[in-house]
Design a protein around this nucleic acid. Structure first.
Lengths: 236, 236
DNA sequence: GGCAAATTTGCGCGTCACGAAAGTTTCGGT
DNA sequence: ACCGAAACTTTCGTGACGCGCAAATTTGCC
């Protein structure tokens, strides 16, 4: 794995590297080959998560995960570069699907609404409180120091993906317009904030309203914070 | 390294783990102990960066870095968990300093201005085009797949730090108000976007104006995108 | 059925992360 | 200036990891 690429191409390629992974949503399509790959990937990811949740991350070897998924340890590494990556794969997939969801929104719709809907669409029906396993999973990821790094990495990559989708909607090129990136950063942060706060909610509340509220706080907060209309800006 | 912590506390603690690292700015203060630690850390980080830049990341062992810094390999791991971490330490430190800079802004100043100044203050004088080594360093980090992950992680942690500083300024608690997190996410993304674009600038341009422009694009972009004033919002 | 391409697998190696304990340096009180 | 405690470094050892390589197996397609 050598390292010569043109600057910002690399990020894109890194994003694609993960984006290229078959999403679970590719269920319907394709031949046996593809379906098996998806299944294996999911198997591994789920096994990793489950084992880590109820046995403790440090007590799970790659070997265990592979065994639980019925493949050789070597195959594990064909899918994931580390057990951390395997554990975060679900988050990864969901994050990637948000970009897709955004592209699928009706053409005329205002960006804000599209983004909101795209995001919310990936967290189930509005009043749905996620099941125990999912909660335990997220909690594990957000709680375990060793996983936080991976989590942040996933979030970061998701930003690029989301930014591309936003740029498409705005009809601008990410090469010249920095706004999509920024917007994506804010939206991603809004999601994270909502999730964290949701994790802390003691009588557990449904996630989606919190998520919606977070995006609303984004909007409302910005209004109070934006500087006066840019007057005749300086240097370039 | 076991893993039982209360949910969102862990992130904070992870942030602190890195934030707690002595910053190079602690130069002036403290006894010999502290100063040596800072020196060693910096030594290691610089060695890692330099070696990676001109020899290729894959041709640098932890052992090499330790040797170049004049310490034992084991000591390297007392400071950094991986060579990637070592390489990104400079970015790490700068990111952390932005939070400090924000806290140091005059009390009455509007948030937007404070943030802008805090950010810009960490990228040198306005017309200063960074030196070759720094450029090569950033390019390496943003270009090498294996380092991108670490970079994103750093950015993610920086967000938390920045968010805390913003929350302080706004006088709200990050526990209940999600806006600081979101704002921090946007600002961080703005910085990244500016840096990437700057890396791509062919007749090299100074970074600071680009950074300023990015923040301006943030503001201007938001104005065009914000939804109509929230009317009587729903569920909570 | 059978060939080409993709995927899985076994093997091996160099590297890594980190616990434990002993050695060394710094600190603070007297 | 000395001494004991605390902090930091080092040596040693180990289990695990990440991945290149090449052989074996499975899948896709005609």
């Amino acid at each position: 794995m050598l390292t010569a690429v043109t600057a910002a191409e690399a990020i894109t390629s890194a994003v694609e590297h993960l984006a290229r992974q078959p999403l679970a949503s590719a269920h319907e399509t394709a031949g046996l080959r593809e379906r098996k790959k998806v299944a294996t990937r999911q198997s591994l990811s789920e096994a990793a998560m489950r084992l880590a949740v109820d046995r403790g991350l440090d007590n799970v070897l790659v070997e265990d995960i592979a065994e639980a998924a019925g493949v050789s340890p070597r195959t594990f590494n064909n899918y994931f570069a580390s057990k951390y990556e395997a554990i975060c794969a679900l988050q990864q997939d969901r994050a990637m699907r948000i970009g897709q969801a955004l592209r699928a929104r009706p053409a005329g719709e205002p960006l804000w609404e599209s983004v909101t809907q795209a995001v919310l669409s990936q967290f189930g029906p509005a009043s749905h409180t996620p099941d125990k396993a999912w909660i335990a999973g997220i909690r594990l990821v957000v709680t375990t120091p060793a996983l936080i790094g991976e989590y942040l990495k996933v979030q970061g990559l998701a930003q690029y993906h989301l930014a591309e989708a936003i740029a498409e909607r705005l009809g601008t090129s990410p090469e010249t317009d920095m706004f999509p990136r920024i917007m994506a950063g804010a939206v991603t942060a809004a999601m994270q904030a909502a999730i964290e706060r949701w994790l802390r909610s003691d009588p557990p509340v449904p996630l989606v309203p919190l998520m919606r509220q977070s995006l609303r706080q984004f909007a409302d907060g910005m209004r109070g914070v934006l500087p006066a209309e840019t007057e005749l800006a300086d240097s370039g």
